[in-house]
Design a protein around this nucleic acid. Structure first.
Lengths: 133, 133
DNA sequence: CTTGACTCTCCAGTTACTGGAGACTTTAAC
DNA sequence: GTTAAAGTCTCCAGTAACTGGAGAGTCAAG
C-alpha cells in the first residue's frame, strides 16, 4: 500500500504520515523505487494513532499507547492510568478555558458597543491587576 | 526603567518583553549603553498586553487591541466585535474539548483496569472509525 | 512519447516564546 | 582600584506537530 492510499484510508495527510515515519512513530518499508510501502499492521497502527490524536493525545502519548497496544504483556491498568492522566489534563484545560471565557464575557457584557471611544473592555484590560486569582 | 524592572512590574519574562520589542508590539527606546529604556506608557502597554494574553488573545489580536486602546477615535463597538469573536473561538475550543473528554472518559469508564491485557480503551482506539461524528 | 498523477527529499515557516553561549556594562563589596 | 556578581545585549537553536513549496524522480494511460 502506498502512502496516498494510506492517507485516504486513515484520513491522515500524506505529510503527517511521512512525519510519523521520520520521527519513528510508524515506519514503513521501502520498495525498490524508494517509495514507502505500508502493510496492514502499519495501516492499523496509523489508524490507532489518528484516533489518539483526535482525542487530544500528544505524539509522545501516542508512542506510549502504541507500545502498550503491541505489548501482549500489557495490563489494562497501565492503559487506564495513561488515559486518566490525559483526562485530567483535558479537565484542567477545560477549567482554565471556562475561566477565561467567564472573565472576557463579563467585560463584553459591560460594553454597550456604541460609537463612542468609551469602552469598559479596554479599561478592564488596562486594569492594574486582575482580581480573579 | 530597565527591562528587569519591567519584568518584575508586569510579571512578563524578560525574554517575552524582548520578543515583543523585536516583533514591534511594544518597543522601547535605547540608552547610551544600548539597554532598552521603558517609560510609563510603554509599561502600561505591556501590562495591557499581558492581560490580553492571560485572556487567551493571540499576539495579532493584542496588536489590534493595543491600537484600539491608543486610538482616541475608536468606537466601543469595534472593541466589542473583536472581543466577541474571541469569545466565540473560546466557546468552540470549550465545546471540542468537552467532546474529547466525553469520548475518552467513556472509554476509561469501560476499563476495569486489572492486570490482564484485555483493555476496552485500546480496543476503542483501534476501532475502525469513530461513531460520534 | 508525453502528460499527469504520484512519490521522493530537503528547506522554510508556523506560534510564542525559552534556553544558552559569549560579550559587554553596571553595581556592590573589599 | 580591583574584582566579582548581577544585569543586559545579540544571536542561534529548539519547542509541537505539522504544512507548504521547490525540484527531481517514477509510474500508468493514451
Amino acid at each position: 500500500m502506498k502512502i496516498g492510499d494510506v492517507a485516504k484510508a486513515t484520513g491522515l495527510s500524506i505529510k503527517s504520515i511521512r512525519y510519523y515515519h521520520d520521527i519513528g512513530l510508524v515506519q514503513a518499508e521501502r520498495g525498490d523505487n524508494g517509495y514507502r510501502e505500508y502493510n496492514s499492521s502499519q495501516l492499523e497502527a496509523l489508524q490507532f494513532v489518528q484516533h489518539c490524536r483526535e482525542l487530544g493525545f500528544s505524539i509522545e502519548e501516542c508512542k506510549d499507547l502504541l507500545q502498550l497496544k503491541h505489548d501482549p504483556q500489557r495490563c489494562a491498568s497501565d492503559v487506564k492510568r495513561l488515559a486518566s492522566e490525559h483526562l485530567k489534563v483535558l479537565e484542567q484545560r477545560m477549567a482554565s478555558l471556562a475561566d477565561l471565557h467567564a472573565e472576557l464575557s463579563e467585560l463584553v457584557n459591560q460594553c454597550h458597543g456604541g460609537d463612542s471611544p468609551d469602552c469598559p473592555i479596554i479599561e478592564g484590560l488596562s486594569g492594574k491587576s486582575c482580581c480573579h486569582h
